[in-house]
């Protein structure tokens, strides 16, 4: 089986310096991976780099996504290819209704993949259903994108977008941060319903808490730009008990 995402010996710089220093990672279809690590270890850099955010320079290494060289693609082309990033801090777009934004997103993605767009009626029906599953009031679809949303609403809105776009790989960048326990369970329910044999999930998190609700197949510990340890779900418990110091204090 060929990997959905293959990151090989990736070195990445930002203006402030070197962030990723030889990161290697492979995610197969059907797998959920979690990347944990202390602040500043490069977790969000990896997420942003995969999505194509400007400002990240690849020094060496490669990223293959669904068999194509991801690094050559524009951000929207990566999205069209099926790569989704749930943002850590979703930005507001005042005046553009959430529904309008979602429709544009789904339509553009369908068009780029030579698919027929959903009819407006079908789209709205589906969107309302998914929103209800995420405990989002239908009124919220009429509001501006993330405009005046609470932290929990913003994160649930990201999951809503993920479910509607049905990407091949969803990268969740600290989706659990700022969520109370009820919202966390709702988000986890959404992600778990998304899991299938065909797609993959890459969760970036600081806390073990999320992994109680979304049980990963593989956990990686990222420190100083490299994955220093990988293991099964049990690794999270060990980390919870001993802290990152347990791993970072000894040579990888």
């Amino acid at each position: 089986m060929s990997a959905l995402l293959n990151v090989e010996d990736l070195h990445v710089n930002v203006a402030e310096g070197k962030i990723l220093k030889g990161l290697t990672l492979a995610i197969n279809p059907g797998e959920v991976h979690a990347i944990m690590g202390p602040n500043g270890s490069g977790k969000s850099t990896l997420a942003n780099l995969l999505a194509g955010r400007p400002g990240y320079q690849v020094q060496s290494g490669s990223v293959t996504f669904a068999g194509i060289n991801l690094l050559e693609l524009e951000p929207e082309e990566r999205a069209h290819a099926g790569l989704f990033l749930a943002f850590q801090y979703p930005v507001e777009i005042p005046g553009v209704s959430n529904m309008e934004f979602l429709k544009a997103s789904v339509d553009h993605t369908a068009a780029a993949n030579d698919q027929e767009p959903l009819s407006t009626v079908d789209f709205m029906r589906r969107t309302k259903q998914v929103a209800a599953d995420l405990d989002l009031d239908p009124e919220f679809l009429k509001r501006g994108v993330n405009e005046g949303f609470s932290g929990g609403e913003k994160k649930r809105n990201e999951i809503l977008q993920m479910l509607l776009l049905a990407p091949k790989l969803a990268v969740l960048d600290e989706t659990d941060s700022g969520l109370d326990i009820d919202a966390l369970q709702t988000v986890a329910k959404g992600v778990n319903s998304f899991r299938s044999a065909d797609n993959g999930v890459l969760m970036i998190t600081h806390y073990q808490r999320l992994l109680d609700y979304i049980v990963p197949d593989v956990i990686h510990v990222l420190a100083d730009g490299q994955i220093i340890r990988s293991g099964g779900a049990e690794l999270a418990l060990e980390l919870e008990e001993k802290g990152y110091g347990w791993l970072t204090d000894q040579p990888a």
Partner: peptide
Amino acid sequence: LCQQRGIDTEKAVSMIVNG
């Protein structure tokens, strides 16, 4: 954000301006 959701920059600008 728009690009990551598959919306190219030109369409994104128009959408933001219309909003």
